[in-house]
Every structure is written in C-alpha cells, then in structure tokens.
Design a binder for these strands. Structure first.
Lengths: 343, 343
DNA sequence: TTTAAAAATTTACGCGCGATAAGTTTTTAT
DNA sequence: ATAAAAACTTATCGCGCGTAAATTTTTAAA
C-alpha cells in the first residue's frame, strides 16, 4: 500500500502498466489475460489498494453476480441454518448472496422480492411462506427472474423445487412409533400456514391407515408463526383434559413439539420411552434445539444439506446457461429418523 | 401497467410530462417537488412500471442509502431477533439494510466488512465477535466508514457502543439467587470468546463478595460457538462428579444454561425451586427458547429493544449529519430479572 | 522460417443517473 | 398588480465501468 491515490480503474491501469479494458477483463476473470499481464496487475494490487466500484460494474453488466436468498423467517434456527449453508455455496461459486427474511409475513415477502428486483439479481432462491404467500405476485416475479423454490412448494412457480418427501418421512416415523408402542395421535396447527403441514397431515393419515390404525388428530388453535407458544398453550389445555387419544403424539414440526414438551413438563406428565413415562412425543425437522429438550426429541432430520446443495447448483446452472428450465423439476429428498429420548 | 417499455428515467420523464431532472428530484425526495408535478409523476408510476436503476443512482450519489448490519451469528436466535428489530427501524427511516452474519469466525467478520466496503454503505451497525475479532482491521474499517458497535464492545472502535450493563444485571440476579437460596456457582466457558463473558465473570465475583460470599467458578472446557453442546457435555461431566459447590448455578448465558438443563435432565438431577429439586439454574439473555426449557429458565432479559433503537438512531444521526462523533458514546442498558421455574 | 489463426490488447463508445448552471415559468407574498 | 421567491426546463458534464470492433501480439501449424 503506497503511492498515489487510486480513484478508479483508469488510475489503476496506469500504475500497473496495462490498458484499462484489459484490467477490466482481469477482474471479470483473472484467467482470461496473459500470464505476464496477470502478474503485472497482481503486483500493482499489492502496492495499491484498489477494488472495482461495484455499482459501475453492475450498471453495465448484463447480469449481475447477485443471487437473492429469501427465507420465511430467520428467527427460526432451521432457516438460519439452511441459509447459512446456501450462502457458503453461493460465495464459493463466485456469486454474491443477498439474504432476506420475510419475517413470516406475505407483505414482507413481496417487499423482499421488490427490493430484489431493483438489485437485478442473476437468480433467486426462495423458500416461500407457503399458503400465506401471494402466489400470483411470486409467480410474476419468478417469470421475470430465474427462481428456484425450496422448502415449500408453490405449484408451477419457479424453475424447480427442492424439498423433503413428507410422505416418506412421516411414513417412516409413524411406522417407528407404531412398532415401538401405541399408534400416534397427530398434533398440528388448526390452520397451518405451510403446505408441508398439509402434506404431513395427509401422509400421517395414509400411513396410519396402511398400518391398520385410525388416524386421530389434535388441532391446536392459534395462528401465526409462534409455534412454540401455541404448542405450549394448547399442549397444556389438551393435557389437562386428557384429550390425547393415545399415549403417543406425533407433532407436525419440532417447534410445536418443543412447546408440547414444555407443557408436559409443567403439567407433571413424564415424557419418554423408559419406565414411568406417560407420554411419547415425536417431532419433525431435527430443529437445532431438539437435541437439548427434556427429554431430547425423537424426530425426522431433513436432508437440508442436499436441499441446499441442489437448490444452489440448479440456480447457478440456470444463471450460467442463460436458459430457463424446460421442465419444472421437483425433487424430494428422504428424511432420516433420529431416535432420541422422547419417543 | 401499459404502454411502451420504459427503459430509463428519460423515458419515464417523457411519459409523465415532466423533465428528467425534476423526476430525479422526485425520487430523491417526493416532497421537494410541487404537488401538481408530484401527482403527474405518481399517475405515471401507476401506468408504467418504472423504478430507478439502483446502480446508476449509487454510482453518482455521494453517500448511498445502505446501512450495513453485521451480527456474529444469525444461527443464534438472540441475534436473529435483534437483527430483525434493527432491520425494521432502518427500513422505516428510508434506508436499506444489508444483513450479514459472521458465522462465529473472525475471517468471515473481516470478509463481511470487506464486502460492505464495496457497497459503500452510509453507515454500519456491527456486533463484533468480541475477543476473536481482529480488532485492528475492524478499527480500520470504522475509521473509513461511520460505525456503531452494539452487544460487544471493542475499546475505542466506532463512534458509539450500546450494550447491556453486565455489572447491573449480574448483580441483580446474584442478589436474587442469594435471597432465595444458596449462593450461586458461576458456570462459564473456560476461554470465553465474548467480552461480555469476561464482564459477567467479574460482575459475578464483585456481587458475591459484596454479599459476603466467596465466588466459585466452574469452567467448561471446549471452544467455539456451540454453547448448548458444551453446556451439555460439561454439565454432564460436572454433575457426575458432583462438582458444583452449591445447589445453585448461574450460567454465563442462556445457551450454556440450556445445555446444562438438558444434562441435568439426563443425569436425573431435578432442577427447579419447588419440593424435591436438587439444583437451581439461572441464565442470562432471555433467549427465545428459555421460556420452553424444562423447567423454564430464570434469566436476565436484555433490553434489546433499547439497544436496537438507540444503535439505529445513532448511526442514522451520524449518517445524516455527515459528521463523526466528538466523544465516543458508551451506553449500557439495565437488564430485567425474569423469574421462571428453574431458580 | 513462414503464415494463418488465436489470443490479447487498445480504441471508442455508451450505460443511467446525479449534479449543476442558466434561463423560463409558476407560485407566493406584499 | 407587482416583485420576489420557488419550482421547473434545457443543456451539459461526469461517474466508473462493460463491451464491440479494430488492432496488435503471440502461438501453432506447415
């Protein structure tokens, strides 16, 4: 770091002894210039502190190097974790991730897409809110800008969808629960906000019937995204009434289960699989905290590594191929049973 | 939405019947143009889908409208929540927040600041990693770009710092624990990554001595940010040895406490304040999940609404005043005792 | 070594907007 | 009604870079 102030690429080209357009080429792809000129430029980079102006770059480039990454709710550690995975992959591919959270609201989701529009991203990875999403507006966005959905599907929107196979995973855990004890009751939100919740409900019913059991539901009243609180409040209410039809409860997701476990504890209902327990509880998602519940939560681990990897690969392929998908690809990954103390 | 394609501000000015410079003024401040012209422009905005090119704007503006927001770890729901609060305030003030997570690593922290540099933000809100931060590099950044620190202080870095008064909050909870039972042992990381952890350690010692008790420490081995796991593993180890010197444990933070509670459960040690309990556990931070631990966690609630609000206000004042702070302001907010079931 | 092809470089221009100056029209105040 | 102030228009420049076309250099093949 020394010498005169470098104000732009022209200045920098001067001190490095190379023409500005060649320097420009270098920054777009260092391998595209002759080795000798690359060395000259890199030598200059060591002596002077210069970096290209990102606004000037993007004003002229056809496509930016930005990839939008929109999740329903960053406060949910599940999405925080998957977003982190994806961010890493995007950076590794030489792109610039832009992380936005919809905070559980469709207005914010649209606002996020709007703000992405002005960033002119090369592509977008979107985990939609689901049923709460304004599907038309989202579809319109996906029409404009290459978009890959993950976690929650909106029929026909975007170039591809990657998520979990709820039928497989719920089937798996229902089977496990039935093998190891009483058949489970399904504990869920009365009005789920997420399409996965509907799929899980149906998957539960199907799995139970195939095993010769009658599906039984307990529906928690309440709305919004504060699942733990709803699971807790409604859990207390149901436990007080003794209204779980069997001693086994399969929750639609881990956050609901976390609330229910807390309610069981406060209600003095011992949860687990050992001696002296009165209730088994299972969840779905392998939430980062499910290891530390009391007892630790038996659940399904979504393969979010696969979901993240494939989603990023797909959007990058679309972006780099400058082509739209011919068929909309829908890929569902299997969940894995995680046996812990609660069921 | 109709009519010809609008490619730039010139086109849009034409269809709205206003000159381009005036349209430019409008977009910078709608109140700066005559009401009649504002209506014309807004009428045109309804008919045509135009939004100014953000890259061209920022290339020419002295200062952008971007505010960087860097947190140590978005996977931690505490930071996710405070980031969300701040994002809202920044948007409300007409600025554009850019959320970045350092994922617990100093390299990523520096990378984040570097990537912010190329965005040329008007100002930055930074919750540094703390002791792991490369202080010199962060200080250099804060020299370049107006920066306000929050949560963790780095001496002399940035224009201001807002955080919690650990002396007050730890004093408060130590006092509470001593009034209601045995004096607490302090459970903490052996090598804390965060300056708050050090302040809490010292605050604990001071508070204990003032109350006539001998401070006693249990230090968890392990490093990194996986506090729950460390609290769990080390909690099991210490409980197995019966090495807590009293029946009351004050944890340096809630995540450690969550791990410890899980360990106590698995070890068959009943936690709480009622009959038949053997251990009291308290935490610090009012982590979003501390309501749902078993038992629910007695803790200190940081006033992160105040921290968020004041941090945003301060950076915006700096940004809009185009002035640097004369004195570096350090403001610590009081914590609030949250009494729950665990202690 | 010659020569054509490929690669690298330079020339020249344009992107979409902010900023400013000078002149014109409209609004406000007296 | 009139002057002053405010808002607008026209004209022009410059920001920092990407990129097509033209030119030069290098490489590879004959």
């Amino acid at each position: 770091m020394s010498g005169a102030k470098i104000r732009n690429m022209e200045d920098f080209a001067a001190v490095s002894g190379i023409s500005r357009p060649t320097v420009s080429k270098y920054f777009n792809d260092p391998a595209s210039v002759r080795k000798s000129t690359r060395f000259k430029i890199e030598a200059a980079l060591e002596r002077y502190d210069y970096r290209p102006n990102i606004y000037a770059i993007n004003q002229n480039r056809r496509r930016t190097k930005n990839i939008g990454l929109v999740v329903p709710n960053l406060t949910d550690p599940f999405f925080a974790a998957i977003a982190r995975t994806m961010e890493g992959l995007i950076v590794a591919a030489g792109y610039n991730p832009l992380l936005l959270s919809s905070h559980g609201g469709p207005d914010q989701e649209i606002a996020n897409l709007d703000s992405l529009r002005s960033i002119k991203p090369a592509g977008v990875l979107l985990a939609p809110l689901g049923r709460a999403s304004r599907t038309e507006a989202v579809a319109e966005f996906a029409q404009e800008i290459p978009t890959v959905l993950f976690d929650a599907n909106l029929d026909g929107v975007g170039e591809a969808f990657f998520g979990s196979d709820n039928a497989q995973s719920i089937g798996l855990i229902v089977d496990y629960l039935c093998r190891t004890g009483e058949a489970p009751v399904f504990f869920e939100m009365e009005y789920p906000v997420n399409p996965n919740a509907y799929r899980r409900r149906n998957a539960y019913a199907t799995a139970m019937e195939q095993l010769g059991h009658k599906p039984q539901f307990v529906r928690a009243r309440g709305s919004g995204w504060d699942f733990e609180e709803i699971g807790f409040q409604e859990g207390k209410r149901v436990l007080a009434k003794g209204a779980f039809q069997t001693n086994t409860v399969l929750c639609s997701n881990d956050r609901l289960a976390i609330g229910l476990l807390s309610a069981a504890y406060e209600s003095g209902v011992p949860v687990g699989i050992g001696e002296g327990t009165a209730l088994r509880v299972a969840g779905h998602d392998d939430h980062p905290f499910s290891r530390y519940t009391c007892p630790s939560l038996t659940t399904i681990s979504q393969d979010y590594n696969a979901i993240g990897t494939r989603s990023v690969e797909t959007i990058l392929a679309l972006v780099e191929g400058e082509t739209r998908a011919v068929d909309r690809e829908v890929t569902l990954f299997d969940g894995r049973l995680v046996m812990r103390g609660s069921a």
